[in-house]
Amino acid sequence: MILNTLPEPNADTPWEEILNFGQDPAARAALARLRKWTATIAKDSPSPGVGEDELTALPGGH
Results as ranks from 00 to 15, higher is better:
23 Q>N: 15
7 P>M: 14
16 E>V: 14
40 T>E: 13
61 G>V: 06
42 A>I: 01
16 E>Q: 08
14 P>L: 01
45 S>L: 03
20 N>R: 15
15 W>E: 10
25 P>M: 11
8 E>R: 08
17 E>I: 12
16 E>N: 06
19 L>F: 01
42 A>H: 02
29 A>G: 00
33 R>K: 07
38 T>W: 08
7 P>N: 11
9 P>R: 11
4 N>H: 01
62 H>T: 13
47 S>V: 07
40 T>M: 09
28 R>S: 12
33 R>H: 05
52 E>K: 05
34 L>C: 12
32 A>N: 07
51 G>Y: 00
13 T>S: 07
22 G>I: 07
37 W>N: 07
45 S>G: 03
60 G>I: 04
18 I>M: 08
39 A>R: 13
8 E>C: 04
39 A>P: 00
31 L>E: 11
35 R>I: 09
13 T>L: 02
13 T>K: 03
3 L>S: 10
18 I>K: 11
53 D>C: 08
61 G>C: 08
35 R>N: 14
61 G>F: 03
12 D>W: 00
45 S>T: 13
34 L>S: 11
62 H>C: 03
46 P>Q: 06
55 L>K: 00
7 P>T: 13
21 F>M: 13
26 A>N: 08
8 E>P: 00
33 R>F: 06
35 R>T: 10
41 I>N: 06
20 N>M: 04
5 T>R: 09
53 D>F: 10
56 T>W: 01
13 T>I: 11
11 A>C: 05
53 D>Q: 15
19 L>Q: 12
60 G>V: 04
53 D>P: 06
5 T>S: 10
15 W>N: 12
47 S>L: 02
51 G>F: 00
24 D>P: 01
54 E>N: 15
34 L>I: 12
28 R>C: 11
42 A>Q: 07
31 L>R: 15
22 G>Y: 07
9 P>T: 06
13 T>A: 07
42 A>S: 08
51 G>D: 09
19 L>E: 07
40 T>R: 14
40 T>I: 01
5 T>P: 01
61 G>M: 04
61 G>A: 08
4 N>K: 06
15 W>A: 13
4 N>F: 02
